[in-house]
Amino acid sequence: MVNTPPVESLTPQPVMQPHSEPVGADAPVVHPVKAEVRNLSFYYGSFKAVKNVSLPFYEKAVTALIGPSGCGKTTLLRCFNRMHDLYPGNRYEGEIVLYPSRINIVGPAASPIEMRMRVSMVFQKPNPFPKSIFENVAYGLRLRGVGGRSELEARVEQALRGAALWEEVKDRLRDGAYGLSGGQQQRLCIARALAVEPEIVLFDEPTSALDPIATGKIEELIDDLRQRVTILIVTHNMQQASRVSDYTAFMYLGEMIEYDRTAKIFTNPSKSLTEQYISGRFG
């Protein structure tokens, strides 16, 4: 680890300057940095899918990764919980520093299992286990050794409430998760990800398999969650990015083209490529 800036100071210095103006009195909220990507490259075998990307992720804020298909945004997201380690031939270069522990998520010293315990993920398609609703939410807790009946029940309820699903399922916790609708299944997966009290939650196009009403509910939920946890969201839907995120990074062909406050990106981007993309001229 080289010259890590002290995170306690409220103006962390990410490698790229994210703000068009310095964070000051006019900034609505000042977020400390939760994670910082530094010169990260990622290879699938010999193919370089993420090219020397650097950007910060602020605590208790929503950062959206946007860009056309194949731009490396999902690849970048999946670096955060070391999902790439499941498949042979993948390689990381650079760092993702997680604060305050300052551990390099993609470094050799970090255990993939530990990183997945600290960074939860919600996938593109709802993927509940073919078990009961209760067991789905409790599973992550069981993996962490939470065994007591009453504690499990309390934390499952808390997670389901947090995912705005409790009222709909409280009378059928023992029923199979596949009896739920697609949108409910996705909120169940969010509850499963929240139950373990992660430091970061990764959302990989969480609404792309859902109808507009279910999508709306998930977006509301993400809006609520930003009070409690750091969120990274990959999305194809630019309206979604502008609605739910505080910061937005635009990626293209594995490179990070522009990173800024979401309002700035969508109203006055500084790069012409970004402007072309958000105005729908390609992608």
Binding site: M83, L86, E114, M117, K125, P128, F129, R192
Partner: peptide
């Protein structure tokens, strides 16, 4: 078994054997 099941479990911190 869909790969998404494995990924769901791994993402929660399960080991291969779990």
């Amino acid at each position: 078994i869909p790969q998404s099941m494995r990924e769901a479990a791994y993402a929660l911190g399960a080991t291969r054997w779990q």
